[in-house]
């Protein structure tokens, strides 16, 4: 989507919504088990941090 065109709530909150869902999945995964559950939690909870780094790499204006 190009800058300049107004976008709706769905477009604005698509990434934030996905990252929030990943966070919740991660928080709960580590609660309900060990081992693989923990690994899933680390990956899911790292996504918001990764998103910041990636966004900076591709979106610097």
């Amino acid at each position: 989507m190009s800058a300049g065109r107004a976008r709706g709530a769905w477009a604005i909150f698509a990434w934030p919504g996905l990252l929030a869902a990943a966070t919740m999945i991660g928080l709960i995964a580590a609660l309900i088990g060990d081992g693989l559950h923990d690994v899933l939690a680390w990956i899911a909870l790292a996504l918001p941090v990764v998103a910041v780094v990636v966004a900076q790499a591709v979106r610097r204006q």
Binding site: R7, I12, A14, W15, V54, A55, Q56, V58, R59, Q61
Partner: peptide
């Protein structure tokens, strides 16, 4: 803050930092 995020981001892509 989340509610205010919408009007601020109406014309920006997610993750944009206007470095200039």
């Amino acid at each position: 803050g989340v509610i205010l995020y919408a009007p601020f981001m109406r014309k920006l892509d997610f993750g944009t930092v206007r470095a200039t």
